[in-house]
Simulated scan of single mutants.
Amino acid sequence: MAVPTTRMLVLAVVRMMQPVHGYDVRRELLSWHADKWANVQPGSVYGALKTMQRDGLIAVEGVGQDGARPERTTYRLTVEGEKVFGDMLREALWSTEPPKHSYYAAVSLIPYAPRDEVIAALRSRILKFEADLVYLDREVERILAGSGDPRETEPHHVADNMRLAADHTRADLEWSRKTLQRIESGELDVWSGEPYK
């Protein structure tokens, strides 16, 4: 069973930065780009904090107001939260569950798409992946040039996450290039079915 990513990441940030405001948890996860690779949306952080407080995984450390800013709640991990975080992290680290991606289904249905559209889509993917790799490689360099202290900049472990994303992107790019070449050369010719309209 897959570990609930938002819950695990929010617990991790509370644990790492406690006592911490929900806004700081949100900001930290955005600095990790978790909205992109883990689909952790900024609004879901606050929902996760409420649910985890209700479930006894985090506790309110205090409520305060700084000047004219709105009142903010500060959270700390509970003993139960520490246990649940450890269990979730362990399960995720040992998981070899393959990622589920709608593109896998689309690849299996290529014979039912017009050949020229498949070629155009592959060319588009190749351009996108090439641009993504430039971005990811630059981000890794930028993050590693910082202190690594999460209270100042992105922690260095975020660079490792981006390296993993870059490696996946490189594999997808390689597959896309090879598949395009196989289609264009005629080696891969699967268009016997009726394409959609």
Results as ranks from 00 to 15, higher is better:
residue 120 A to G: 09
residue 88 M to R: 02
residue 187 E to A: 09
residue 141 E to N: 01
residue 50 K to I: 06
residue 36 K to N: 03
residue 41 Q to A: 09
residue 81 G to Q: 06
residue 50 K to C: 01
residue 10 V to I: 14
residue 39 N to I: 08
residue 37 W to R: 04
residue 158 V to M: 05
residue 50 K to Q: 11
residue 35 D to H: 10
residue 163 R to P: 01
residue 98 P to Q: 05
residue 80 E to W: 03
residue 91 E to M: 06
residue 47 G to V: 03
residue 121 A to P: 00
residue 156 H to S: 09
residue 175 W to T: 04
residue 191 W to H: 07
residue 104 Y to C: 01
residue 164 L to W: 10
residue 97 E to H: 06
residue 7 R to W: 09
residue 104 Y to F: 11
residue 120 A to L: 13
residue 180 L to F: 07
residue 59 A to N: 10
residue 58 I to F: 13
residue 172 D to C: 03
residue 165 A to Q: 13
residue 10 V to K: 01
residue 116 D to Y: 12
residue 62 G to E: 14
residue 65 Q to E: 05
residue 52 M to W: 09
residue 160 D to Q: 10
residue 5 T to K: 13
residue 88 M to I: 10
residue 146 G to Y: 07
residue 23 Y to V: 08
residue 197 K to H: 03
residue 55 D to N: 11
residue 161 N to M: 14
residue 168 H to M: 11
residue 146 G to H: 12
residue 165 A to S: 12
residue 163 R to H: 09
residue 187 E to H: 02
residue 36 K to F: 13
residue 61 E to P: 02
residue 118 V to I: 14
residue 32 W to I: 02
residue 1 M to V: 13
residue 28 E to C: 11
residue 115 R to T: 06
residue 57 L to A: 05
residue 113 A to C: 03
residue 87 D to R: 15
residue 179 T to K: 08
residue 108 S to C: 00
residue 31 S to W: 09
residue 41 Q to E: 14
